[in-house]
């Protein structure tokens, strides 16, 4: 973490950048998306960006609701179409920094086509895809990111289809910056989001987030702290001994793929 990022992390008053009249927000207790929102606000502060030249575009779903709480130029668009709105916005106003916030259902299912084409065109957008492995807003249905064996309201006996690896997908499609972050590693998230925004070209950050209310309860993963602990254990970078010290046992949905966090692919343009 750079000195600037550290200063942003310690000195920020989040209320300055939030629409306080919109509170209370709709996110459930323990939802990981608030961690991402805070990291995003810290990343923007560390980059010293002008809020009048910054636009946030989102689709539909829990993650996409974040733009409703940011006190800036925000667009809440149709389901799956955030990247097409953002592409139009960037074409009309190339001077703006455009951040897209989407989810796994919004960005990989109904909007999956736009994701690969935005990556192929390498449009200068920063796309944050918050992956909580479920459709949280509509009640916890199976998503294209749900790990096989996981229970959802549409797979009471466990999901059977293989999930997407979003980072591999957009890398193959041509994105010039691809990273993976996690709500259990919040300060690393600041750096990744800042690097994605600063990058020229299509930058993509998949952020492992948690949905304790639907995904966690159905899969008996505990509450938010337990889910965060288990999430950390999925990452190669985290010291196993550190994870082992904690009280959490092996994840019930064992066999989940190991993940790498950090910048996975970068091509200077």
């Amino acid at each position: 973490m750079t000195a600037k990022a550290l200063a942003a992390a310690t000195g920020i008053d989040y209320r300055e950048h939030l629409r306080l009249p919109m509170m209370p927000h709709i996110l459930c207790p323990g939802c990981g998306h608030g961690i991402v929102l805070k990291a995003l606000l810290r990343a923007i502060r560390s980059l010293d960006l002008d809020w009048d030249r910054l636009a946030f575009v989102a689709g539909i779903g829990c993650s996409s609701r974040l733009v409703g709480y940011i006190d800036g130029c925000t667009l809440h668009t149709t389901h799956g179409r955030a990247l097409t709105f953002a592409t139009g916005l960037k074409l009309a106003r190339p001077d703006l920094t455009v951040v897209v916030i989407t989810g796994d259902g919004d960005g990989l299912a109904i909007g999956g086509n736009h994701l690969i084409h935005a990556a192929r065109r390498d449009v200068d957008l920063a796309c944050l895809l918050l992956n909580n492995e479920t459709y949280g807003m509509t009640g916890g249905q199976v998503a294209p990111t749900t790990v096989p064996g996981s229970v959802s309201t549409t797979t009471p006996r466990g999901a059977t289809e293989p999930p997407f690896d979003a980072c591999a997908l957009v890398t193959a499609a041509g994105a010039s910056f691809v990273a993976r972050g996690a709500t259990s590693l919040p300060l690393e998230l600041d750096t990744l989001i800042a690097a994605a925004i600063a990058h020229r070209g299509f930058s993509f950050v998949e952020i492992e987030s948690d949905c304790p209310e639907y995904f966690g309860r159905y899969n008996r993963l505990g509450r938010a702290p337990e889910m965060l602990q288990q999430q950390r254990r999925r990452f190669d970078e985290v010291d196993e001994t550190l994870a082992a010290k904690r009280f959490v046992g092996a994840p019930p949905h064992a066999g989940v793929p190991r993940l790498r966090t950090g910048v996975l692919h970068e091509r200077k343009t």
């Binding site: 389901h79 259902g105 299912a109 109904i110 459709y135 509509t138 009640g139 249905q141 309201t153 549409t154 797979t155 009471p156 006996r157």
Partner: peptide, 19 residues
């Protein structure tokens, strides 16, 4: 099926009958 309220109640109810 594809989730959207309020139709999605059918999705869950049908999935339960299958399970």
């Amino acid at each position: 099926a594809y989730p959207i309220r309020p139709y999605d109640g059918v999705m869950q109810a049908a999935a339960k009958l299958i399970a």
